[in-house]
Amino acid sequence: MRFQLSPEQRQFSASLHDFLAGADTASTARAWAAGEHDRGLKLWRALADLGVFALLVDEELGAGPVDLVVAFEALGYHAVPGPLAESAAVAPALLTGDRLAALAAGDLVATVVAPPHVPLALDADVAGVVLDLTGADVAAGDPEVVRSIDPARRLFRVPAAPAAETAAFDLGVLAVAAQLLGAGQWLLDAAVAYAKQRSQYGRPIGEYQAVKHLLADVATRLELARPLLYGAAVAGDTLARDVSAAKVMAADAAYLAARTALQVHGAIGYTAEHDLGLRLTKVRALAGAWGTGSFHRTRVLR
């Protein structure tokens, strides 16, 4: 099958990257992790103005899962915080009426809890609604905070019944897989740029064959994951199988990108002030979000 993004989709991707590149998302993510949400919510509304939260809501846009993947690659690349997959991918399949309109406009933040694969509600303290996969509201009450490896992912233990895997669940998986691929691409780009700057023995380390091989391996893994991701977006009746395959490949590729970027950067990559850390922790957290690798591999096999 021959697949290519339309000119409109490429323009949408470029506009998101241009906007987010100037939005200082790194500082926004750090503020979000500290419990300061004003900047993040302002960014949320700006993304709504660009149509991110209306992709699966507004039929006049003519958008679908492919457009969702385009958006979430950009969101993952720039480490945008918040329950993005829950609000832009899952909640549109669960909400109706005024709440759906508010979601598309960026006036409502939604999160989802769906044990066993989504046992914790992301950012339940910020969300205006907590849903299960049937579309029912879940009473958050005073939820227990659970620490995540990614400080920008604030997880809350909210009582909810086990949920079956639905089309809404698969859209959440698809969105997270796209975020992982975007984060992996940022890590590769950062590692390549640093390899051109950092010198050892009078030469940039990027000139050494061993470093070139490390970076080439990451580029190959990312490029192998991308067709699976977009293939899942157009899969239709086989969405469950294909989206699980895409999640496995995107998570593995992003994890390799994270390890390699850290190796290339050396000690500076361990510092909390470096933006590398925002993606390292996010990749590790998203790899297990919306279903572990073991679950998705078993699903493909089944």
Rank of each mutant, 00 (worst) to 15 (best):
L5S: 06
L5P: 04
S6H: 13
Q9H: 12
S13W: 15
S13Y: 15
L16M: 09
D18M: 05
A21C: 01
A23C: 01
A26E: 12
A26I: 05
T28W: 01
A31T: 14
A34Y: 00
G35F: 02
R39P: 01
G40N: 07
W44Q: 09
A46V: 02
L47C: 07
L55C: 04
L56K: 04
A63E: 06
G64F: 13
L68K: 04
L68T: 02
V69Y: 06
E73D: 11
E73Q: 14
L75H: 10
G76A: 13
V80C: 14
E86A: 15
S87V: 06
A89P: 14
A89Y: 04
A91K: 10
A93L: 15
A93M: 15
R99Q: 14
L100H: 06
V109I: 06
V112T: 01
V113D: 05
P116G: 02
V118Y: 00
P119R: 05
L120W: 00
A121T: 01
A124D: 04
G128R: 02
V129F: 04
L133A: 01
G135L: 05
A139T: 05
A139C: 00
A140W: 00
D142T: 14
D142E: 13
P143Y: 00
V145G: 00
S148H: 05
D150W: 08
R154K: 11
L155H: 05
F156W: 14
F156N: 06
P159V: 04
A161G: 04
P162E: 15
T166G: 13
A167F: 09
A167K: 07
D170H: 10
V173Y: 07
L174W: 07
A177W: 09
A178N: 08
A183M: 05
Q185G: 03
Q185R: 15
V192F: 09
R198M: 09
G202Y: 10
P204W: 13
P204C: 10
E207T: 13
Y208Q: 03
K212G: 11
K212D: 02
K212L: 06
A216Q: 11
L222M: 08
A225N: 07
A225I: 03
A225V: 03
G231L: 11
G231M: 10
A232I: 03
A233S: 08
R241L: 15
R241V: 13
A250V: 01
A251Q: 07
A251K: 10
L256A: 15
L256Q: 14
A257Q: 07
A257F: 12
T260A: 07
Q263N: 10
G266A: 08
G269A: 11
Y270Q: 11
D275G: 10
L278G: 06
R279Q: 02
T281A: 14
R284S: 10
A287F: 09
G288D: 07
G288Q: 05
W290G: 03
W290D: 12
H296V: 03
R297I: 08
T298E: 12
T298C: 00
R302C: 11
